[in-house]
């Protein structure tokens, strides 16, 4: 079963062709890495898949739903219900504690449940820091709060745009461990990364160049070539 199907998807910003005729399917439970040089369209693709932007052309089917036909409200609903987003910058609401930052995702999704949120923080190793404000947490810890927030509503698809881009090796390892755990429990993961090291953990790696898929390979092969 495929959770995501992109057919002939293009995205243009004015004259910039950020994506050109992309065909891609992602299976349920797959871990996909997207790599490629800067400006090749990786973030653009994540935005389209993550329901934050609409493709200028082509069809995107996510979990059986055609995105291009949905109004903005519908896109917000899908984003809320099916997708967990992790950004390169660890975006947290600065005046809410780690716990509250997780609870807020529950709030907009369904019902706030502090115990569940605390459990999610424990699973990323932050049980002790639940009452701390983002400013009192290190970058790695902040990113783990973001991950806990992305996971709290049990999304079918986890989208991570350079989740380790601003982290040191130790924290990168921690994040990858969490992703592995999620992968093990059946989540579908799409990770954008510049690091072959991170990419090598994926089942499949696609390399974008000038808005087109230039190559497809596997994490294992990537590891060898790196």
């Amino acid at each position: 079963m495929n959770i995501l199907e992109l057919k002939d998807v293009s995205m243009t910003y004015g004259t910039v062709k950020a994506l050109q005729h992309i065909d891609l399917t992602v299976g349920q439970g797959e871990w996909l890495a997207i790599m490629g040089p800067s400006g090749s369209g990786k973030t653009t693709m994540m935005n389209i898949v993550g329901c934050m932007d609409k493709a200028s052309d082509g069809s995107v089917v996510l979990d059986g739903q055609e995105l291009s036909k949905l109004p903005p409200r519908g896109l917000t609903a899908i984003r809320r219900d099916k997708i967990g987003l992790i950004f390169q910058q660890f975006h947290l609401v600065p005046y809410l504690t780690a716990l509250e930052n997780v609870v807020i995702a529950q709030y907009y999704h369904s019902m706030p449940d502090e115990d569940e949120a605390l459990e999610a923080l424990r699973s990323v190793g932050l049980g002790e820091r639940a009452r701390h404000l983002p400013s009192q947490l290190s970058g790695g810890e902040q990113q783990r709060v973001c991950i806990a927030r992305a996971l709290i509503n049990c999304p079918k698809l986890i989208l991570a745009d350079e989740p380790t881009g601003n982290l040191d090796e130790a924290n990168e390892k921690l994040v990858l461990e969490i992703l592995h755990r999620l992968h093990g429990s059946g989540s579908t993961i799409i990770v954008v990364t510049h690091s072959p090291d991170v990419g090598s953990h994926a089942d499949r790696v696609i390399v974008l160049e000038h808005g087109k898929i230039a190559r497809t390979t596997t994490g294992a092969l990537l590891h060898k070539s790196a």
Partner: peptide
């Protein structure tokens, strides 16, 4: 704006 964008990204509607 970052905060507002973030809230929207994690599922808040415009009305929220």
């Amino acid at each position: 704006s970052t905060e507002i964008g973030l809230l929207k990204a994690i599922g808040a509607t415009d009305l929220d």
